[in-house]
Write a protein that binds this DNA or RNA. Structure first.
Lengths: 332, 332
DNA sequence: CTGTTAGCGCATTCAT
DNA sequence: ATGAATGCGCTAACAG
């Protein structure tokens, strides 16, 4: 690979002239620029990032600590958004993937992160959760994307789960549904509480008397393989007539299970019972038949805003709630 | 961030002693090592990657050009495997995500890749396909993961789709299925041909006479939203009795559409008709009810082998077929 | 407008 | 066993 020096030699000029041709072309006379440019193209010269970066770390590199991306790959969009955003502003980014439960891995990840001397670090997570920040990272400028922490005072960009569920529920009320069955995600999830509040706030506003007792239920944790179990039990008791007209699923995976369960028992969606989800999983949710009404987790926006936090030099601290847009389908 | 120099000053030794403490501790006396180590810990010193990399590029850094990851995020595993593998061997990697259809982006991606002066480049893709290699990258050592190319002579690590579909089909024959309905992925996909061959080879081996004419069909491209249309048409004509006992889906997304279609028409899986898929999409496939029998795309292994290609200094060229393991569920 | 000097953080080489 | 000198590719600061 060619270096500045080689380009300079080929062009018969000094190092600095080539450097300027690359970074401040306006400081060169038109003809020397043209001359140097020719040499650059001829040698296929590309600046050496490491060499640039070594000098006083210009502060245009962002390190990304990506946690648990493997288990739910729907959050790649966060990473993609970061990369695209920094690129647009002439910054750089690099990603370290790891898993939070492995403490040793976390330590190593922190070291690798620091070895790039980033101006700041974005900690991103596949699903909203509280994260522990490695000790070594606590002195570096940091911002959180799709996670929160108690270890340091930082800004975080997280989904507005309350608003998302609220908007969805308002739609349901407007459409005239009266008897909801809610299968929330596990209680310990941060999003669970917000969404539950969002639902109840929107629902009680209009329909406080009509809430059936069983409207509130909890799905099972982690893999969600048993996410529709509550529904299954209800169907066992009364397999013909449903005691609810709308099933509010804690996420699209629960909705996925719910669809199969309902369809296999001969219920039509939405004629016999409507279904809504949450997440809008890229690559999957658009395959629901009928198309699923759901709420989109703003992965892209969370990544973008986290990146802009550094690029624009924002100094804020605390939670920034990102709107979750409604995705309207045929399932309600 | 502390530098070698600062550590040296704190420890009252020269730069080199600190450098050796990090890279060749055995060359130091036990007591100076201990002394220096203390200073290193005290300052939370982490070596500067750029500074290391600047010197003659030791050749332990791999650049990854990841194509189209956003559209089907199931391939994160490739990236993860690469990162994990290089790390285990003391190498480094960095990833540039881009989209092949944007030619300008590809050029820029190539430049950014080169700016890190990698010892080699892995080109990875979300789905198996032929890729164009940017001109600037054609002189760098390269290996392909889940893609192939005609532009350069390189090694590629791709799924053995023939073997995968062959093994699956053998299982079906063994189980006694007689009348298959195949809904392949679009013909222009490389995998389509291999899988079709795999199916036919395994099926004709045993059951050549009994192949019904309609066993061969093609799904629709890209989003797969219409992937089960052929089945839908068949059901319109004859909605009561099925003329097939096993539906072979080109991938798990088609299988999901098929599930919904069958269940909504009152057919039971696998009692009335069995279903099998292909891909084993991480985070999704395990939610099928009943659990889906499918074939796993070896994303992790493709990434790992591509990384090892450089790490072990393999010199081979051409296609390396990675086994696709059978995932046996309750759907057949 | 262009060139020279110096130094970023580190490891290779050679000395002690 | 430890240190000093040198240079990797590049740019900020100064000189001309």
């Amino acid at each position: 690979m060619a270096s500045l020096k080689q380009v300079a030699e080929l062009a018969g000029v000094s190092l600095m002239t080539v450097s300027r041709a690359l970074n401040n072309p306006e400081k060169l006379s038109a003809k020397t620029y043209k001359h140097v440019k020719k040499a650059i193209d001829e040698l296929n010269y590309v600046p050496n990032f490491s060499a640039k970066n070594i000098r006083g770390s210009t502060g245009k590199t962002i390190g990304v600590l990506s946690l648990g991306t493997a288990t739910t790959p729907f959050s790649v969009e966060i990473i993609l958004a970061i990369e695209k955003t920094v690129r647009q502003h002439g910054w750089h980014s690099f990603v370290i993937n790891t898993f939070e439960d492995d403490k040793q891995e976390m330590e190593q990840a922190a070291e690798r992160l620091l070895s790039y001397r980033p101006a700041g670090i974005i900690v991103a997570r596949n699903g909203l959760k509280e994260v522990k920040i490695p000790q070594k990272l606590r002195n570096i400028p940091m911002v959180l994307s799709n996670c929160v922490t108690n270890d340091v005072d930082v800004a975080s960009y997280i989904p507005n789960d309350f608003q998302g569920q609220f908007d969805l529920t308002e739609l349901l009320v407007k459409k005239g549904y009266k008897k909801p069955l809610c299968m929330y995600i596990p209680e310990d999830a941060i999003a669970a509480k917000e969404r539950k509040n969002g639902f109840e706030k929107a629902w009680f506003n209009q329909l406080s008397p009509q809430i059936p007792e069983q409207h509130f239920m909890i799905g099972t944790p982690h893999t969600y393989e048993n996410g529709a179990k509550p529904l299954e039990k209800l169907l066992e008791n009364n397999s013909k007539k449903l005691d609810f007209d709308i099933i509010v699923c804690g996420n699209d995976r629960i909705a996925f299970l719910t669809y199969q369960l309902l369809l296999s028992r001969g219920f039509r969606i939405p004629e016999d019972v409507a279904v809504v989800g949450y997440d809008n999983m890229v690559g999957v949710t658009h395959l629901f038949q009928p198309s699923l009404t759901t709420v989109q987790l703003p992965h892209y926006e969370m990544g973008k805003q986290a990146a802009l936090h550094f690029i624009e030099g924002r100094n804020s601290i605390g939670e920034n709630l990102i709107t979750c847009p409604l995705i309207i389908g045929q399932s309600c």
